[in-house]
Design a protein around this nucleic acid. Sequence first.
DNA 1: ATGACTGCAAAGACTTTGCATCTTT
DNA 2: AAAGATGCAAAGTCTTTGCAGTCAT
Lengths: 136, 136
Amino acid sequence: MEATTKQFRKRNAILTCLRGTMLHPSAEMVYEMLQETNPDISLATVYRNLALFRSQGLIQSLGTVNGSERFDADTHPHVHFVCTECGAVMDLPQVEPPLSLGAAAEESTGCQVQGCQLTFTGLCGSCKSKMKEETS
Amino acid sequence: MEATTKQFRKRNAILTCLRGTMLHPSAEMVYEMLQETNPDISLATVYRNLALFRSQGLIQSLGTVNGSERFDADTHPHVHFVCTECGAVMDLPQVEPPLSLGAAAEESTGCQVQGCQLTFTGLCGSCKSKMKEETS
DNA sequence: ATGACTGCAAAGACTTTGCATCTTT
DNA sequence: AAAGATGCAAAGTCTTTGCAGTCAT
Protein backbone atom coordinates (compact mmCIF):
# COMPACT_ATOMS: atom_id res chain seq x y z
CA MET A 1 0.00 0.00 0.00
CA GLU A 2 1.29 3.36 -0.99
CA ALA A 3 0.90 4.89 2.41
CA THR A 4 3.21 2.49 4.14
CA THR A 5 6.16 2.65 1.78
CA LYS A 6 8.98 4.84 2.84
CA GLN A 7 8.78 6.74 -0.41
CA PHE A 8 5.38 8.22 0.32
CA ARG A 9 5.47 8.37 4.09
CA LYS A 10 6.11 12.10 4.29
CA ARG A 11 3.77 12.97 1.50
CA ASN A 12 1.03 11.11 3.29
CA ALA A 13 1.91 12.67 6.60
CA ILE A 14 1.38 16.11 5.09
CA LEU A 15 -2.01 15.27 3.66
CA THR A 16 -3.07 13.50 6.83
CA CYS A 17 -2.00 16.47 8.88
CA LEU A 18 -4.05 18.82 6.76
CA ARG A 19 -7.06 16.53 6.89
CA GLY A 20 -6.83 16.21 10.62
CA THR A 21 -6.76 19.84 11.59
CA MET A 22 -9.31 22.63 11.68
CA LEU A 23 -6.63 25.31 11.71
CA HIS A 24 -6.42 25.89 7.94
CA PRO A 25 -2.68 25.95 8.34
CA SER A 26 0.10 27.58 6.36
CA ALA A 27 3.05 25.58 5.04
CA GLU A 28 5.06 26.62 8.07
CA MET A 29 2.28 25.53 10.42
CA VAL A 30 2.10 22.13 8.74
CA TYR A 31 5.85 21.86 9.04
CA GLU A 32 5.72 22.61 12.74
CA MET A 33 2.82 20.25 13.37
CA LEU A 34 4.77 17.47 11.70
CA GLN A 35 7.90 18.00 13.79
CA GLU A 36 6.67 15.61 16.41
CA THR A 37 6.12 12.66 14.10
CA ASN A 38 8.54 13.60 11.30
CA PRO A 39 11.32 15.65 12.82
CA ASP A 40 13.47 15.14 9.73
CA ILE A 41 11.00 16.62 7.25
CA SER A 42 12.01 19.62 5.21
CA LEU A 43 9.99 22.77 4.74
CA ALA A 44 10.64 22.49 1.00
CA THR A 45 8.94 19.11 0.99
CA VAL A 46 5.89 20.63 2.65
CA TYR A 47 5.72 23.38 0.06
CA ARG A 48 6.27 20.95 -2.79
CA ASN A 49 3.57 18.58 -1.67
CA LEU A 50 1.06 21.28 -0.89
CA ALA A 51 1.54 22.55 -4.44
CA LEU A 52 1.11 19.02 -5.72
CA PHE A 53 -2.06 18.39 -3.75
CA ARG A 54 -3.53 21.63 -4.93
CA SER A 55 -2.79 20.84 -8.55
CA GLN A 56 -4.51 17.50 -8.02
CA GLY A 57 -7.50 19.16 -6.45
CA LEU A 58 -6.98 17.35 -3.16
CA ILE A 59 -6.74 20.59 -1.22
CA GLN A 60 -7.53 24.21 -1.82
CA SER A 61 -5.96 27.49 -0.90
CA LEU A 62 -7.85 30.07 1.10
CA GLY A 63 -5.58 32.86 0.08
CA THR A 64 -3.08 34.74 2.14
CA VAL A 65 -3.50 35.66 5.80
CA ASN A 66 -0.84 37.89 7.31
CA GLY A 67 1.52 37.11 4.51
CA SER A 68 1.22 33.33 4.44
CA GLU A 69 -0.92 31.17 2.25
CA ARG A 70 -3.41 29.03 4.12
CA PHE A 71 -4.66 25.63 3.01
CA ASP A 72 -7.79 23.60 3.50
CA ALA A 73 -8.27 19.90 2.90
CA ASP A 74 -12.00 20.45 2.54
CA THR A 75 -12.55 21.29 -1.09
CA HIS A 76 -16.30 21.55 -0.86
CA PRO A 77 -17.55 25.09 -1.18
CA HIS A 78 -17.94 26.51 2.29
CA VAL A 79 -17.63 29.81 4.08
CA HIS A 80 -14.73 31.00 6.22
CA PHE A 81 -14.12 33.46 8.98
CA VAL A 82 -10.70 35.07 9.35
CA CYS A 83 -9.68 36.89 12.50
CA THR A 84 -7.86 40.04 11.50
CA GLU A 85 -6.17 40.16 14.87
CA CYS A 86 -4.62 36.71 15.34
CA GLY A 87 -5.00 35.26 11.84
CA ALA A 88 -7.16 32.36 12.97
CA VAL A 89 -9.24 30.83 10.22
CA MET A 90 -12.38 28.83 10.88
CA ASP A 91 -15.23 27.33 8.97
CA LEU A 92 -18.73 28.76 9.12
CA PRO A 93 -20.74 25.65 8.29
CA GLN A 94 -23.90 27.44 9.33
CA VAL A 95 -23.63 29.83 6.42
CA GLU A 96 -24.54 28.69 2.95
CA PRO A 97 -22.18 29.78 0.15
CA PRO A 98 -24.14 31.78 -2.43
CA LEU A 99 -23.22 29.57 -5.34
CA SER A 100 -26.36 30.56 -7.20
CA LEU A 101 -25.01 34.05 -7.59
CA GLY A 102 -22.31 32.65 -9.82
CA ALA A 103 -24.74 32.09 -12.66
CA ALA A 104 -25.84 35.70 -12.49
CA ALA A 105 -22.22 36.76 -12.60
CA GLU A 106 -21.56 34.64 -15.67
CA GLU A 107 -24.54 36.01 -17.53
CA SER A 108 -23.71 39.62 -16.92
CA THR A 109 -20.00 39.45 -17.59
CA GLY A 110 -19.25 36.69 -20.05
CA CYS A 111 -16.83 35.17 -17.59
CA GLN A 112 -16.75 31.50 -16.80
CA VAL A 113 -17.19 31.11 -13.07
CA GLN A 114 -15.39 28.12 -11.59
CA GLY A 115 -15.12 28.91 -7.90
CA CYS A 116 -16.68 30.99 -5.19
CA GLN A 117 -15.11 32.16 -2.00
CA LEU A 118 -17.00 33.87 0.78
CA THR A 119 -14.97 35.06 3.72
CA PHE A 120 -16.07 37.05 6.72
CA THR A 121 -13.44 38.98 8.61
CA GLY A 122 -13.44 40.41 12.09
CA LEU A 123 -12.48 39.40 15.60
CA CYS A 124 -12.64 35.85 16.83
CA GLY A 125 -14.10 35.13 20.22
CA SER A 126 -10.86 35.25 22.13
CA CYS A 127 -9.52 38.37 20.41
CA LYS A 128 -12.86 40.05 21.03
CA SER A 129 -12.47 39.33 24.75
CA LYS A 130 -8.91 40.62 24.78
CA MET A 131 -10.00 43.87 23.20
CA LYS A 132 -12.61 44.35 25.88
CA GLU A 133 -10.08 43.83 28.65
CA GLU A 134 -7.73 46.37 27.18
CA THR A 135 -10.39 49.04 26.96
CA SER A 136 -11.78 48.41 30.42
CA MET B 1 -4.78 73.14 -0.80
CA GLU B 2 -3.01 70.00 0.19
CA ALA B 3 -3.12 68.45 -3.22
CA THR B 4 -1.16 71.16 -4.91
CA THR B 5 1.75 71.38 -2.50
CA LYS B 6 4.84 69.53 -3.52
CA GLN B 7 4.78 67.62 -0.25
CA PHE B 8 1.62 65.73 -1.05
CA ARG B 9 1.82 65.59 -4.79
CA LYS B 10 2.93 61.99 -4.98
CA ARG B 11 0.66 60.80 -2.23
CA ASN B 12 -2.25 62.29 -4.07
CA ALA B 13 -1.13 60.88 -7.35
CA ILE B 14 -1.24 57.41 -5.87
CA LEU B 15 -4.73 57.80 -4.47
CA THR B 16 -5.95 59.42 -7.65
CA CYS B 17 -4.48 56.61 -9.70
CA LEU B 18 -6.25 54.03 -7.60
CA ARG B 19 -9.53 55.91 -7.78
CA GLY B 20 -9.29 56.28 -11.51
CA THR B 21 -8.72 52.69 -12.48
CA MET B 22 -10.90 49.60 -12.61
CA LEU B 23 -7.91 47.29 -12.59
CA HIS B 24 -7.68 46.74 -8.83
CA PRO B 25 -3.94 47.15 -9.18
CA SER B 26 -1.02 45.87 -7.17
CA ALA B 27 1.64 48.21 -5.81
CA GLU B 28 3.80 47.46 -8.80
CA MET B 29 0.95 48.19 -11.19
CA VAL B 30 0.30 51.53 -9.51
CA TYR B 31 4.00 52.28 -9.75
CA GLU B 32 4.02 51.54 -13.46
CA MET B 33 0.87 53.50 -14.14
CA LEU B 34 2.42 56.50 -12.43
CA GLN B 35 5.61 56.39 -14.45
CA GLU B 36 4.15 58.62 -17.11
CA THR B 37 3.20 61.45 -14.79
CA ASN B 38 5.66 60.81 -11.96
CA PRO B 39 8.71 59.13 -13.43
CA ASP B 40 10.73 59.89 -10.31
CA ILE B 41 8.42 58.11 -7.89
CA SER B 42 9.77 55.25 -5.84
CA LEU B 43 8.17 51.87 -5.40
CA ALA B 44 8.72 52.22 -1.65
CA THR B 45 6.59 55.34 -1.67
CA VAL B 46 3.79 53.47 -3.37
CA TYR B 47 3.94 50.71 -0.78
CA ARG B 48 4.12 53.19 2.08
CA ASN B 49 1.17 55.20 0.92
CA LEU B 50 -0.97 52.20 0.10
CA ALA B 51 -0.38 50.99 3.66
CA LEU B 52 -1.28 54.44 4.94
CA PHE B 53 -4.48 54.67 2.91
CA ARG B 54 -5.54 51.26 4.08
CA SER B 55 -4.95 52.13 7.72
CA GLN B 56 -7.07 55.22 7.16
CA GLY B 57 -9.82 53.21 5.55
CA LEU B 58 -9.49 55.08 2.27
CA ILE B 59 -8.80 51.93 0.33
CA GLN B 60 -9.13 48.23 0.91
CA SER B 61 -7.12 45.18 0.01
CA LEU B 62 -8.64 42.38 -2.03
CA GLY B 63 -6.06 39.89 -0.98
CA THR B 64 -3.31 38.35 -3.02
CA VAL B 65 -3.57 37.41 -6.68
CA ASN B 66 -0.64 35.52 -8.16
CA GLY B 67 1.59 36.59 -5.33
CA SER B 68 0.81 40.29 -5.26
CA GLU B 69 -1.64 42.15 -3.07
CA ARG B 70 -4.35 43.98 -4.97
CA PHE B 71 -6.03 47.19 -3.88
CA ASP B 72 -9.39 48.81 -4.41
CA ALA B 73 -10.35 52.42 -3.81
CA ASP B 74 -13.98 51.41 -3.51
CA THR B 75 -14.46 50.49 0.11
CA HIS B 76 -18.15 49.78 -0.16
CA PRO B 77 -18.94 46.09 0.13
CA HIS B 78 -19.09 44.65 -3.35
CA VAL B 79 -18.34 41.43 -5.13
CA HIS B 80 -15.29 40.60 -7.23
CA PHE B 81 -14.32 38.25 -9.97
CA VAL B 82 -10.72 37.09 -10.31
CA CYS B 83 -9.44 35.42 -13.44
CA THR B 84 -7.24 32.55 -12.44
CA GLU B 85 -5.51 32.66 -15.78
CA CYS B 86 -4.41 36.26 -16.23
CA GLY B 87 -5.01 37.64 -12.75
CA ALA B 88 -7.51 40.24 -13.88
CA VAL B 89 -9.81 41.48 -11.16
CA MET B 90 -13.17 43.07 -11.85
CA ASP B 91 -16.23 44.20 -9.97
CA LEU B 92 -19.50 42.33 -10.16
CA PRO B 93 -21.90 45.16 -9.37
CA GLN B 94 -24.80 42.96 -10.45
CA VAL B 95 -24.25 40.63 -7.54
CA GLU B 96 -25.33 41.64 -4.07
CA PRO B 97 -22.89 40.84 -1.26
CA PRO B 98 -24.61 38.61 1.29
CA LEU B 99 -24.02 40.92 4.23
CA SER B 100 -27.01 39.55 6.06
CA LEU B 101 -25.22 36.24 6.48
CA GLY B 102 -22.75 37.99 8.75
CA ALA B 103 -25.27 38.22 11.54
CA ALA B 104 -25.90 34.50 11.35
CA ALA B 105 -22.18 33.93 11.52
CA GLU B 106 -21.82 36.12 14.60
CA GLU B 107 -24.62 34.38 16.43
CA SER B 108 -23.34 30.91 15.84
CA THR B 109 -19.69 31.55 16.54
CA GLY B 110 -19.31 34.41 19.00
CA CYS B 111 -17.09 36.20 16.56
CA GLN B 112 -17.48 39.86 15.76
CA VAL B 113 -17.91 40.19 12.02
CA GLN B 114 -16.51 43.37 10.57
CA GLY B 115 -16.10 42.63 6.89
CA CYS B 116 -17.33 40.36 4.15
CA GLN B 117 -15.59 39.39 0.98
CA LEU B 118 -17.23 37.47 -1.81
CA THR B 119 -15.03 36.54 -4.74
CA PHE B 120 -15.83 34.44 -7.73
CA THR B 121 -12.95 32.87 -9.60
CA GLY B 122 -12.72 31.45 -13.08
CA LEU B 123 -11.85 32.58 -16.56
CA CYS B 124 -12.47 36.09 -17.80
CA GLY B 125 -13.96 36.62 -21.24
CA SER B 126 -10.69 36.92 -23.09
CA CYS B 127 -9.01 34.00 -21.36
CA LYS B 128 -12.09 31.91 -22.03
CA SER B 129 -11.75 32.66 -25.74
CA LYS B 130 -8.06 31.86 -25.73
CA MET B 131 -8.73 28.49 -24.15
CA LYS B 132 -11.23 27.68 -26.87
CA GLU B 133 -8.79 28.56 -29.62
CA GLU B 134 -6.13 26.34 -28.15
CA THR B 135 -8.41 23.32 -27.96
CA SER B 136 -9.84 23.79 -31.44
C1' DA C 1 13.96 73.99 14.28
C1' DT C 2 10.61 70.47 13.89
C1' DG C 3 7.82 67.22 11.79
C1' DA C 4 6.55 65.04 7.45
C1' DC C 5 7.43 62.83 2.76
C1' DT C 6 10.53 60.60 -0.32
C1' DG C 7 14.37 57.84 -2.73
C1' DC C 8 17.59 54.53 -2.30
C1' DA C 9 19.44 50.50 -0.84
C1' DA C 10 19.38 47.00 2.51
C1' DA C 11 16.85 43.83 5.01
C1' DG C 12 12.97 40.69 5.74
C1' DA C 13 9.45 37.20 4.94
C1' DC C 14 7.56 33.76 2.23
C1' DT C 15 8.10 30.53 -1.52
C1' DT C 16 10.40 28.09 -5.29
C1' DT C 17 14.14 25.65 -7.41
C1' DG C 18 18.71 23.13 -8.56
C1' DC C 19 21.31 19.45 -7.30
C1' DA C 20 22.90 15.42 -4.95
C1' DT C 21 21.13 11.44 -2.50
C1' DC C 22 18.20 7.74 -1.56
C1' DT C 23 14.12 4.71 -2.68
C1' DT C 24 11.17 2.00 -5.52
C1' DT C 25 10.29 -0.67 -9.74
C1' DA D 1 18.79 1.73 -15.03
C1' DA D 2 14.98 4.98 -14.65
C1' DA D 3 11.64 7.62 -12.33
C1' DG D 4 10.23 9.73 -8.25
C1' DA D 5 10.76 11.86 -3.41
C1' DT D 6 13.45 14.46 -0.25
C1' DG D 7 16.95 17.64 2.20
C1' DC D 8 19.71 21.33 1.86
C1' DA D 9 21.03 25.59 0.43
C1' DA D 10 20.63 29.08 -2.95
C1' DA D 11 17.78 31.93 -5.50
C1' DG D 12 13.55 34.48 -6.40
C1' DT D 13 9.47 37.56 -5.34
C1' DC D 14 7.12 40.70 -2.98
C1' DT D 15 7.17 43.93 0.82
C1' DT D 16 9.07 46.61 4.64
C1' DT D 17 12.44 49.49 6.84
C1' DG D 18 16.66 52.52 8.06
C1' DC D 19 18.75 56.50 6.84
C1' DA D 20 19.87 60.67 4.66
C1' DG D 21 18.06 64.43 2.08
C1' DT D 22 14.25 67.66 1.04
C1' DC D 23 10.06 70.28 1.92
C1' DA D 24 6.59 72.80 4.82
C1' DT D 25 5.28 75.20 8.97
